[in-house]
Nucleic acid binder design. Structure first.
Length: 233
DNA sequence: AATTCCGGCAACCGCCTCCTC
DNA sequence: AGAGGAGGCGGTTGCCGGAAT
């Protein structure tokens, strides 16, 4: 009923990829680029669904993948990003060069969830479980915008904790409505996603938007996303 | 040494969004 | 404007290897 299958399933391989299939896919993409995933399998001589090829390439074969263990810094960044974005793995992956959404999703489910639970933090809400106090440095709220009145991170943290109390709806179940607050400060010579990561606009598919300023997201520059513009449901 | 259990990860599935006509 | 196709995404499954018994 309804949608047609993305490919002819009767004549496609499934399951683990063989070395030969990997090599075919790699050499085809090297020669012709990614192009149209639907037609790629046939062109590459693979009995695979286009989606399967795409997934294999993105999650495993791409040359810019980092692989290997996650660093402590990456862990903390993932936790912070998850507290802001929820299970938006692709957005999170966009801030971690060389990591894929699938990898981060798996890592979250197998390692970070447990890590947060052991800290007494609910991995879904990023709040202390049953009134347990989270360990220091586990705060999951990030100040996007430098607040001149709060001079150190503790003050900032308190500020946002207060905010949570005054607004029960300020939950990190990020069903977000994000507006784009600032005008461009400067024209970008090239698309900034080619420079370093992606801004939230880009990640949300708003590259063509005039609001895409591509300033840093969690870095120092904060033009793209102002936490005060996040409307929590 | 054999069996069971469990965690990690690659891959699949189905829905959603975007793009083109 | 809307229908259809393709790509993208998040949730889930299933296999495999190592640890425990």
């Amino acid at each position: 009923m309804g949608r047609s299958p993305c490919c002819e399933k009767a004549h496609t391989n499934k399951g683990a990829w063989t070395k030969e299939e990997d090599e075919r896919l790699i050499s085809h993409i090297r020669a012709h680029g990614e192009g149209c995933w639907r037609s790629l399998p046939k062109a590459a001589g693979l009995l695979r669904c286009g989606k399967s090829c795409r997934l294999r390439w993105i999650n495993y074969l791409r040359p810019d993948l980092k692989r290997g263990n996650f660093t402590e810094e990456e862990d903390e960044l993932i936790i912070k990003l998850h507290s802001l974005l929820g299970n938006k793995w692709s957005l999170i992956a966009g801030r971690l060069p060389g990591r894929t959404d699938n990898e981060i999703k798996n890592y979250w489910n197998t390692h970070i969830r447990r890590k947060l639970l052991s800290r007494g933090v609910d991995p879904l809400t990023h709040r202390p479980i049953n009134g347990k106090v989270a360990e220091p440095n586990t705060t999951t709220t990030i100040p996007f915008v430098e607040d001149k009145s709060a001079t150190n991170s503790e003050e900032k943290t308190e500020m946002y904790e207060d905010r949570e109390e005054e607004s029960p709806g300020f939950d990190l179940n990020l069903d977000l409505c994000i507006s784009l607050p600032y005008q461009h400060q400067q024209q970008q010579q090239s698309h900034p996603s080619q420079r370093r990561g992606l801004c939230l606009c880009c990640n949300l598919g708003l590259q063509k938007s005039k609001d895409c300023s591509c300033n840093e997201f969690l870095g120092v520059e904060t033009g793209c996303l102002d936490y005060r513009r996040l409307e929590m449901k």
